[in-house]
Amino acid sequence: MLIPHPLLGPRDAQEFTYLGDAALIDRPDGLREPEAFHDYLYLRDNPAGVHRELWFHEQGDRSWLVVTRNTVTHEILGAELARDVARGRGRSK
C-alpha cells in the first residue's frame, strides 16, 4: 500500500505504524466520564468498507496522519495530517 502523505507524496506503508480508528483523536475525560472512556479505549466500530484511521510515519517525518482506506479492498482514498484534523475539531494542541 502507498500512503499519499500530504507533505511528502506517496510513501510505502512499511514506513508507518498503525494505531487504529481515527475516532481515537477524540479522547473523553476519563475522570468525569468513566463510561465514555471505557467505550473509547476498548470498543471499536470496526467497519467493513471505508475506515478513517491513524497512521504514524515512524520511519519518516514522524507525522500522525488520518488515512481514509477501504478495509475490504485496501484502496487508500486520502490522507490528512492528524494535526489539521484535530484542529478542525476545535482542539488547540
Partner: peptide
C-alpha cells in the same frame, strides 16, 4: 473475523478489530 459486522446487526459494538 466477521464478529463486529454481525453483532452490529444486534446493535453491539465489540472490543474487537478485524
Amino acid at each position: 473475523g466477521n464478529s463486529s459486522r454481525v453483532m452490529a446487526m444486534a446493535g453491539m459494538r465489540l472490543p474487537i478489530e478485524s
